[in-house]
Amino acid sequence: MRTFLAIAVLGGGVAHATVGSALRIADVAPDIPLIVVVLLALRRGPEFGCGAGFVAGLLQDAATGGLLGVQALTKAVVGFAIGMIGGRLRVSQPLVQIPGLVLLSVLEGLARFGLLQLFHFPAPFGELMTYVVLPQALYNGFLGAALVLALAWAETVKGRTP
């Protein structure tokens, strides 16, 4: 299980820059590490979510050549927050998963933008939201829901196997 978690966190962070392009639709790629962090935080709580978010985000920062620490911080916050409130959410329904992930992605984008503003990030907010954050948030929502369903199906199959 630990190996799986390590692969999920580390692989998710690094794979995003390498494999993520293959999942591109109309120039929009999903934020795979964010989805992985959310899924892990829901299952393992705020502490693990926070740590996983930090590691995945840091690797993502390093892999993509961005400012080290930006995504590490935002994803750590997301992992922590989801780990904290996850128990109170009915996340087994796709009708909750999709809007939930969309909202989370938007919040993470806003947080990232806010953080980058401290370091004089030049991109205009409107364009960033329209062309980057919102499309990616939608993509995350659907992909995340599909992953949740796939995981649930895999667990059901595993449970049936004697």
Partner: peptide
């Protein structure tokens, strides 16, 4: 503990930035 971890992580990130 979780809050402390988040604080440490936030600190590390801000230092890095």
């Amino acid at each position: 503990r979780a809050l402390a971890l988040l604080g440490i992580i936030a600190g590390v990130c801000l230092v890095l930035l």
